[in-house]
Design a protein around this nucleic acid. Sequence first.
RNA 1: GCACCGAUGGCGAAGUGGCUAACGCGCUGGUCUGCAAAACCAGUAUUCAUGGGUUCAAAUCCCAUUCGGUGCUCCA
Length: 504
Amino acid sequence: MAIELFNTLGGQVETLVPSDGAVLRMYACGPTVYDYGHIGNFRTFIHVDVLRRALKQQGVAVKHVMNVTDVDDKIIQRAAAAGVGIGVFSARFENAFFEDMEALGVERPEFLPRATENIPEMVSLIERLAARQAAYQAEDGSWYFRIASDPGYGKLSQKDFDGIEDGARVDVDEYEKDAARDFALWKAVKTGADGVREHAWETALGAGRPGWHIECSAMATKYLGDNFDLHAGGEDLMFPHHENEIAQSEGASGKPFARHWMHVRFLLVEGKKMSKSEGNFYTLRDLLLKGHRASAIRFLLMSVPYRHQLNFTFDGLTESTNAVDRLRTFHRRLKEGQWPEGLSNGMTGSDADVAAAIATARQKYDAALSNDLNTAEARAAIFDMVRAVNVAADQGTLVKRDVQAALAVMERFDGVFAVLVDNDAEITRQALEWAEREGRMGEASPELVATLSLTDEAIEALIAERTQAKKTRNFARADAVRNELLAKGILLEDSKDGVRWKRK
RNA sequence: GCACCGAUGGCGAAGUGGCUAACGCGCUGGUCUGCAAAACCAGUAUUCAUGGGUUCAAAUCCCAUUCGGUGCUCCA
C-alpha cells in the first residue's frame, strides 16, 4: 500500500513513490540553531518523522536530508552578545536540538549538512544564476535573485502578486534592488554599529554571507540531485522560503526542483497562538522540567494529523500520558502473560472475533497512515484492537496465536508512533542534569525532583516492606507505604505475579 | 485591509453527501481487589459555531454572520 500525500504544489493528494523506482529522496528544512527548540518546531519534525517511518514500514527506502542553519542574523547577533564566535554559539544549540530530537524519538535523517560547511556550493549556485541573468549584484555588493526572470514564480503558494502592493510590507529601500520582491542570495559583509565587522566568508562573490534561502537549494541539490521527490517544512515556510528555493534552484538547473511539497500546520497552545507575550511558549525542556514525559509530548504532537491545527494543552498532555500508559500496559500484558495454545472447550482454533479484530486493526492502521498520514485514525484502530484483545484476555478466550498477531500489530504501530519503549525517566533525569548545569532547577517541579531522588532499589525496598505488612494483614502499614510512594509519584499495581510499580 | 484554512460531547479529536457521529482522556455506576491500581462492562453529542439555502438525504455542498489560525514581515 503506497502513501497518498497532499502536495502543496498543485493542491492535490498524490501517491508518493520514488521517482527513480528505488529510493525516496526527501529534504526537510531543519532548525536554525540560535535557541532551544519549542514544541511547535518539534511538531513539524515529528510529523516528518512519521512520514519517513511510515514510508520505511511500507518498504520504501528513504534518503532524507535535513539542513542545520548555523549562520543567520539571529545567530550573529546573539553570538556577538554572548561574546563568542558563531561556531561556538551555534554548536551549543545544535547539540541541544539533537538531544531533544532523540528524546522525542525522532529518527536521524541520513544527512545533516550544516550551512557553514556548504558555502562553496552556494557560491557556485549563485554564479550559475548570474550566468543565466537570474542573479545580479547590487551597489553594496549583495547579490539578489531577479524574480522577473522566473515566469512561474508563485506557483507553490498560489499567490497573486498583482494584488500585493510593493512596499506595503516589503522593505523597498533596502539597497539597490531592481524590484522590491527580489530576494537576497548573498549578503555583503556589514560593519555593525559597534564598528565590528560581521562574520563573513571571502568568496568569488565578494566578502559576505549566504542569504536565507540559498543554503537549502544548495544542500538539497548536492545530496539529492536537481530533481528529487519530496520537500517538507512548516507551513510558514511555504512563502517566501520555499517559493524562493524553487525559483533559485530551477533558475540554476533549468529542471523542476522537488516534485512533492509537504507543509505541517502550526499548533495552538491552550487555544491560542504560541508566543512569548501570551506566556504560552514552551520548549521541550520547559515541559520536561514541569514533569511531563517525553513520550506523552511525542504522542500528543503526533496524534493530530499534520494538516490539521493541533491545540496543545496541559489536559491533552495528561490524556496522552494516560493513553501511552494504557498502550504500554497492554503491550506488557501480552508479552508477559501465559497464553494457551488453544481453547479447552473443544474448540481448537482461536476465538474468531478476536482474530478478526486484530486483522481489522492492522488493515485500518495501514490504511489510515496511507491516507495522507491520518495518525488520529491510525491510533483509533490500535485502541479498538486493545479493547477487543483485553476483553478476550479477561474472558480467557485469548490464545497464543492471537497474542502473537496482536503483538505484531503493536510492533508495527510502534514502528511509527515509537512510544512503547519507556525511556521517560532517563530523559527526564538528563533534563534535570541540564537544568542543574544551567542554574534552572527552580523551574523543576518538586514532585519530579522527589520522584527521581528515589532510586529503584529504595522503591523496591519499600515495596518489599509493604508486601510483608500485607502478609501479616497489617493493611494500615501497607497503605501508608503505598501512599508515601504515591506522594513521590510512584504508582503501585498488585497482580498475581507480584507488585509492579511505575513513575507517574 | 487582502488572500487562504478551520469551528464536531466536559476536554482532545476522526469523519467531508446516505449504516446507531470513530477513537482517546475525563466523569458516573458495576465486575475484580483487604482497600486500591491495572483490566473489563454499562452510561455519558437525537447532534456537528450561528442563520438561511440546495437535495429524496447534509457534520459533510452553497451563501451570510461570528470567532480562531496562517500568509502578505523573522518564525516549525
